[in-house]
């Protein structure tokens, strides 16, 4: 009986790892190929261990299309839009969590509903406005758009975190004579810091990955890494090693971010339905 159970458990573990291998393989393959020469990248059967690891692809990519320009844009856009979004969303989420009214839930759902609309529905007017105000291919314009895109998620996540703060705690602080600022500074922030940090992380990841708007509203000056990869994706696929290097550089920050924010990722992508 115990033997059978052990056997079963090993089988399940094996299946689990097999699936993870399938899921991770393309990512692994991409990183792996980025260290090969173009010639090795095509050699069949693929050499897993015996190849001359090279960094030349990274050098060529940087030389050809100035990776740092694009990554700088990615950093500015994703962090800028996130800071801006938090600035607007934190007071709003606080108000909804601590001064709820009959309409709070409705308001929140309306805000969230915008996230479900397909972006093509708002693309044309936005494009026209950007064209008239000379905002196309500017960092400011794109930062504002990315902020708007992520605002519903930011508000929703912050709201769910703030709502969990026990009210008696705040009342106790108030009874002890704390004013609003002290209440925020010494009670609220320490408790919700983790929540705000996760929201921040998630918003950065989303903004980083955003491709629809960056492809449509930028050309080169404000183009982030998603546009950079798209520009590398030649139809012949002859530069696979270089393309891999470019993709690896584009996703590396996210892979690291993702490791620290797995829970928040699920929570954010499900609009807080799953904790």
């Amino acid at each position: 009986m115990t033997n059978n159970k052990n056997y079963q458990k090993t089988l399940f573990t094996f299946t689990g790892w097999f699936v993870s291998l399938l899921l991770f393989f393309p990512i692994f393959w991409m990183i792996h190929t980025s260290f090969k020469t173009e010639l090795d990248a095509f050699s069949m059967p693929p050499s897993f261990f015996f190849f001359d690891a090279t960094l030349e692809n990274y050098g060529i990519v940087q030389e050809r299309s100035n990776y740092f320009h694009f990554s700088m844009n990615s950093v500015i856009l994703s962090f800028g839009s996130t800071f801006l979004g938090l600035l607007i969303a934190i007071p709003a989420a606080l108000a909804m969590a601590f001064r709820p009214s009959k309409r709070t839930r409705g308001t929140l759902l309306w805000i969230l509903s915008t996230k479900m609309m397909p972006p093509v529905g708002v693309l044309v007017p936005l494009y026209l406005i950007f064209r008239d105000f000379k905002l196309l291919d500017t960092r400011i314009g794109l930062t504002l758009v990315l902020m708007m895109i992520n605002l519903p998620i930011i508000v929703w996540m912050l709201y769910t975190y703030f709502k969990e703060v026990p009210h008696p705690l705040l009342e106790a602080a108030r009874l002890d004579g704390a004013n609003l600022w002290q209440e925020i500074r010494h009670v609220l922030v320490p408790i919700t810091f983790g929540g705000i940090a996760s929201t921040f992380l998630l918003s950065v990841i989303f903004a980083w990955n955003e491709a629809f708007w960056t492809l449509n509203l930028t050309a080169s000056d404000a183009a982030p890494l998603t546009a950079f990869i798209a520009s590398y994706s030649s139809p012949e696929g002859l530069f696979w090693a270089k393309l891999s290097a470019a993709s690896t550089m584009a996703v590396a920050p996210i892979l690291m971010f993702g490791w620290f924010s797995q829970r928040q990722l699920v929570q954010g992508m499900t609009f807080g339905a799953v904790k």
Binding site: F24, I205, T226, L255, M269
Partner: peptide
């Protein structure tokens, strides 16, 4: 499992 979803 979650990694692919975190990619663009």
């Amino acid at each position: 499992y979650l990694y692919p979803m975190a990619l663009s």
